[in-house]
Design a protein around this nucleic acid. Structure first.
Lengths: 195, 195
DNA sequence: GATATATCTGAACGGCGTTCACAGATTGCA
DNA sequence: TGCAATCTGTGAACGCCGTTCAGATATATC
């Protein structure tokens, strides 16, 4: 009785693994149902017994990526806990940059996938994002102890978006692509002048 | 002899107009060669006598959008010339936000189109971007007269990217979508604390 | 072992960007 | 004006895509 469930789970996992590897190598646009089927040794139709469509499969990959991203930033926070709050902000931003630079296509997939069409945003997505925001909010609270909660919340989002923008455009050759050390410097320029 | 050139130019223009309208209404993904041909009253194949592919057509639309974006930001700079440099930075950032919010799909197309594959980035693209950077660099130079040129250049890019990130994620419902007034406030929060 | 249920199969469907052999119009030249 | 050369428009056809579905197959239940 466990036989079928095992095979089910194994195929499901293999498909996610393959999709992850493919996105890592060639980006979202290189993901093809027929390639996945060939790689997993199944028919194309079988994919749709496990996922509603390829977008759902991409979301699974994004879930993994988001988890690793959270771990990377969280690790930086832990390592920097002795530093003053501003330095902690910079440390986690640099961790964000490093993660994005090292796994560019997987990281890009987090934001490129279209998900607003079907149902609402998945829970894990909002939770993962909330986790990142929490990392940012903590040092900010120390830096601005008198700031109202609403404003601090806004500032959290603003700083995340700023760093995200610097990383996004900095890694994009066509916009203002620059060496990673300069991206690091840009993050420092902005964050050091805050507060 | 001008007859054929007229028709050529007219069809070319009509195709760009149609593509612009379609992107404005449904985004890049809704652009379809057969719809364009039907709208322009020509055969699908005729499109490819005027553009290498649909991507080249999109780039034409982006050229227009970039021009209008430059005008919008430039207008804000002109109107704020009496203000102190920091307020000018905020004024042009708000103009950037307003433009992006009012013409969201056209603005998104500027960054969504894939152009790194074929040849190098078009000239007008780099020039338009350079124009935007110049608007930012001027107030910064006043604010930091002793800053080395290289660092000022980096700071220009950093601030542009920051504002871009705040606008990008602020307008995106799934990430941290918020009302436009709050996006405005976020821009102020970051820029007011600079320098 | 027989029946019911769930899964897998892969050809087929509709839609896409792009191509190409052909038809038609326009131009340059005698 | 007539004729050939050249360029432009035509739309069916090509190859690829995600997705579907009737039929084949394997598993679970009794």
């Amino acid at each position: 009785m466990g036989k079928v469930d095992e095979r089910r789970a194994a195929l499901r996992l293999k498909l996610i693994d393959l999709a992850e590897a493919q996105i890592a190598e060639g980006g979202l646009v290189s993901l093809r149902a027929r390639d996945l089927a060939k790689g997993a040794g199944c028919a194309v139709g079988a994919i749709y017994n496990h996922f509603d469509d390829l977008n759902a499969l991409i979301l699974e990959v994004n879930g993994r990526t988001f988890t690793r991203l959270g771990e990377a930033v969280g690790g930086a926070v832990a390592q920097a806990e002795a530093l003053d709050p501003k330095q902690r902000l910079i440390a986690m931003s640099h961790a964000y940059l490093d993660f994005a630079a090292e796994q560019q296509t997987l990281w890009r997939a987090l934001f490129d996938v279209q998900m607003s069409l079907d149902g609402p945003v998945p829970d894990w997505y909002l939770q993962a994002l909330g986790g990142l925001f929490a990392y940012i909010a903590a040092p900010l609270r120390e830096m601005f102890p008198d700031m109202p909660e609403a404003e601090l919340d806004l500032m959290t989002r603003a700083l995340f978006s700023s760093v995200h923008g610097i990383v996004l455009l900095g890694l994009e050759r066509r916009i203002s692509g620059v060496p990673i050390d300069q991206i690091r410097e840009m993050i420092g320029q902005v964050l050091l002048r805050i507060g």
